[in-house]
Simulated assay, not measured.
Amino acid sequence: MVTTMTDINILQESHQFSEIILESDTFNDYVDLKQQVQSNKEAQTMLRHFRSLKESYDEVQRFGKYHPDFKKITKEVREYKRELDTHPLIAEYKNAEKELENLLNEVSQIIALAVSPQIKVPTGNPFFDQASSCSGGCGSGGSCGCG
């Protein structure tokens, strides 16, 4: 592979993006909240309990609805997940995590478009996926709408 000045410029811009991200309020909020969750005894106890419930749930899922505790365990996991998601610190952490994910998706999109408009960036977000994709063409067997 031959490296061109365009490749070098893209790499430099990518590095600048990463520096901007590391200095952003979004990233700093995420790191601060992650540390708060890790040092909060109540949150850690809840997370440990959820992990043990999740292990039980995974065991039950191997047999599906034929497992004798299927309904009980499934209900417990859903209810506890709801309780976990509504814990103020954990909810705030999840929001910060989502904000950081959105920022990284935007940056990935910008970098991909700088290389080529045909690059697809799977973001898990239909807004970004639609902006970068060919409406199901190319690899999906449909007629491609790429330019």
Score class of each variant (00 low, 15 high):
Leu89Ile: 03
His87Pro: 01
Val115Leu: 11
Pro88Gln: 08
Val37Leu: 11
Arg78Pro: 02
Ser56Tyr: 10
Tyr30Trp: 10
Ser18Met: 12
Ile21Cys: 02
Arg62Trp: 10
Thr45Ser: 14
Gly64Leu: 12
Val77Asp: 07
Ile110Gln: 13
Leu47Glu: 04
Ile73Asp: 06
Phe27His: 04
Lys54Ile: 03
Ser14Trp: 03
Glu19Asp: 07
Thr86Gly: 02
Asp29Pro: 02
Arg48Asp: 13
Asp85Gln: 12
Lys120Phe: 14
Glu59Gly: 02
Tyr30Ala: 02
Glu42Gln: 14
Val121His: 04
Ala43Val: 14
Pro122Ile: 10
Ile110Pro: 00
Ser52Lys: 15
Glu13Thr: 03
Ile20Tyr: 01
Met46Asp: 06
Leu53Tyr: 07
Ser116Gln: 08
His15Glu: 14
Glu79Gln: 15
His87Met: 11
Tyr30Ile: 04
Asp29Leu: 13
Arg48Glu: 15
Leu89His: 01
Glu55Arg: 13
Val121Glu: 07
Ala91Leu: 15
Glu99Ile: 00
Ile90Asp: 01
Thr74Ser: 15
Glu23Leu: 11
Arg51Leu: 12
Asp85Cys: 05
Ile21Thr: 01
Ile110Trp: 05
Lys94Cys: 01
Gln109Phe: 12
Asn95Lys: 15
Ser18Cys: 09
Lys120Cys: 03
Glu13Phe: 06
His49Asp: 10
Val37Lys: 05
Tyr66Lys: 14
Asn28Trp: 03
Ser24His: 02
Val107Asn: 00
Glu92Asp: 11
Glu55Thr: 09
Ile73Pro: 06
Leu113Thr: 00
His87Asp: 14
Glu83Met: 13
Glu106Asp: 09
Ser108Cys: 06
Tyr93Trp: 05
Arg51Gln: 14
Phe50Asp: 04
Lys72Ile: 10
Gln16Ala: 12
His87Arg: 01
Asp25Asn: 08
Leu100Arg: 02
Glu101Gly: 03
Ala43Gly: 07
Lys71Glu: 15
Arg78His: 12
Val107Gly: 00
Lys41Met: 12
Tyr80Ile: 05
Asp69Pro: 06
Ser18Gln: 09
Tyr93Asn: 00
Ala114Cys: 04
Ala91Phe: 09
Glu99Met: 07
Glu99Ala: 08
Pro68His: 13
Val37Cys: 05
Asn102Val: 01
Asn28Lys: 15
Leu104Glu: 05
Ile90Met: 07
Arg78Asn: 14
Asn105His: 07
Ala112Asp: 04
Gln38Tyr: 04
Lys41Val: 10
Phe127Thr: 07
Ser14Leu: 15
Phe70Gln: 05
Lys54Asn: 12
Ile21Val: 12
Glu97His: 04
